[in-house]
Simulated assay, not measured.
Amino acid sequence: VSDYGPGVDAEAAFKAGFEAAGGEIVEAIRMPLQTNDFSPIMQRIKDSGAEGVFAFLPSGPTTLGFVKAFNENGLKAGGIKFFAPGDLTQESDLPALGEAALGLTTTFHYAVSHDSAENKTFVEAAGKALGNPAELSFPAVGAYDGMHVIYKMIEATGGAQDAAKAVEAVKGLSWESPRGPVSIDPASRHITQNIYLREVAKADDGTYYNKEVQTFEKQGDPGLAAAK
């Protein structure tokens, strides 16, 4: 994982869930944020005897470099499993990754390929707004849902600046997002959402996409769902 707050949190969360399910962590590596040569890390992974690797890096050039290094250093060909959040295979990076990403599995709250009427409408409109549909990725749906919440706050306050009333109005708010059914937890104010297991697949037209293969519903015990 990248050595900063979210990376350390991801390491702890994965370790807790994986060990609870009976897995063993053979080595944990924290990489400086500025790391761009991942070959030495890939060698350490191979030497550790690990059957799989979990990675967390901030989306962007570093994720491209990490996925390419995983492929080019023989880990994918050697049968080592790859686990990561969806930042590492975001849709806008897939054309650059190409075959290197094929078959990689990630979990995330959204895939551009999500099969719902709401998402199809969103993708069509967002693609037109961006001018290049291939640039569409997960930050867009976050912005879209954020605007939805802002609209609801404005409706509840009649446009007046009343922060307490605005926040109160969206506690427990639920709606059908392009990502699927979501709601705002009244206590934590965090969004509650489905998480999807995705696999990078190749479409008939030769493009690559994140294919949803399993859904972890937002209802129920997330720890139990992860263990299954």
Rank of each mutant, 00 (worst) to 15 (best):
G5V: 02
V8I: 15
A20R: 08
I25A: 05
P32K: 14
D37H: 13
F38R: 04
M42R: 03
A55E: 08
F56N: 01
G60Q: 04
T62H: 11
G65S: 15
F66S: 09
N73G: 11
G79T: 10
I80Y: 06
I80L: 05
A84E: 11
D87G: 13
S92T: 09
D93M: 06
P95E: 01
A96S: 10
L104A: 11
T106Q: 02
A111W: 00
H114F: 09
D115L: 05
S116F: 00
A117D: 04
N119D: 08
T121H: 02
F122Q: 06
V123Y: 00
G127E: 12
G127N: 14
K128E: 14
L130Q: 07
P133C: 10
F138I: 01
A143Y: 08
I150Y: 02
I150P: 10
Y151R: 15
I154M: 12
G158D: 11
Q161V: 11
A164R: 05
K165V: 06
V167Y: 00
E168A: 09
P181F: 01
S183M: 02
I184V: 04
I191E: 15
T192E: 03
I195S: 08
R198H: 04
R198T: 00
A203G: 10
A203S: 10
Y208A: 02
Y208K: 02
Y208G: 05
K211M: 01
K211P: 02
E212D: 09
V213D: 03
K218V: 13
K228W: 09
